[in-house]
Design a protein around this nucleic acid. Structure first.
Length: 213
DNA sequence: ACCCAGGTGGCCC
DNA sequence: GGGCCACATGGG
């Protein structure tokens, strides 16, 4: 494993760009509060097919409205209440429904997001995938960055890297996820850092990273 | 006026 | 299982 090309790319990126915690302090930091975990899960939905900049503006809108909380969202009469806060992040009819579905699932079944840590990774992943608006990338983002579970995230940047380095011809989500997980030590920190580094490498550090929310 | 940004569900074949 | 489309705003 140590000599695998994928692991070598990770090491090269780390040397080149340094620890991602510098750029994504909220997402990669070692100790997270329950609120941190909730914000990351909410952010994972808001940033779907959307620039992080706009997703972050929506997060700030939710914060100003006192709604940056899974419990608060789950208590809403209707997801439409969130339309004005979410608008800036696009898909403003669908994303509120997705946030509502996730919040109701977590609060209704577990009381709070840390409840998900009591169950096996595979089981939580299957349940997340069953929710409206949560596909493989969002499920793995929540598992990896919100819950600190070793579930590698595949996105378009990862696919670009795979194509450029000719790491695989099958670009399906499941195949790439298995490929990366098979070629890396099972280590949450490495998974988190590598996914972030892949994005930096594709974006060439063009001035973004998550601000403190 | 285009094109894209850390996707997903619905529909069709 | 894969291919196409709608969803929607803001920035380059």
């Amino acid at each position: 494993m140590a000599e695998s090309k994928i692991y070598r790319i990770y090491q090269d990126f780390f040397k080149k760009y340094g620890p991602p915690e510098k750029y994504w302090p909220q997402w990669c930091k070692k100790r997270k509060t329950t609120h941190d975990r909730e914000v990351i899960a909410i952010g994972a939905i808001l940033t779907q097919r959307t620039s992080w900049r706009n997703a972050e503006l929506a997060i700030l809108n939710l914060k100003s409205a006192g709604l940056l909380s899974l419990k608060k969202i789950s208590e809403l009469e209707s997801p439409e209440v969130l339309v004005s806060q979410v608008r800036v992040a696009g898909f403003y009819q669908t994303k509120p429904r997705r946030l509502f579905a996730l919040s109701n699932f977590i609060i209704g079944n577990y009381g709070n997001i840390r409840g998900l840590l009591e169950e096996k990774l595979e089981d939580v992943r299957e349940k997340l995938l069953g929710l409206y608006g949560i596909g493989p990338e969002t499920a793995d983002t929540i598992l990896l960055y919100s819950l600190d579970q070793p579930s590698f995230v595949i996105d378009e940047y990862t696919r670009k890297l795979v194509k450029k380095e000719e790491l695989a011809t099958d670009l399906s989500y499941g195949h790439l996820k298995n490929l990366f997980e098979k070629n890396l030590p099972v280590d949450v920190g490495i998974y988190q850092d590598f996914h972030a580094l892949i994005i930096f490498s594709q974006k060439e550090r063009s001035g973004w990273g998550m601000k403190v929310v």
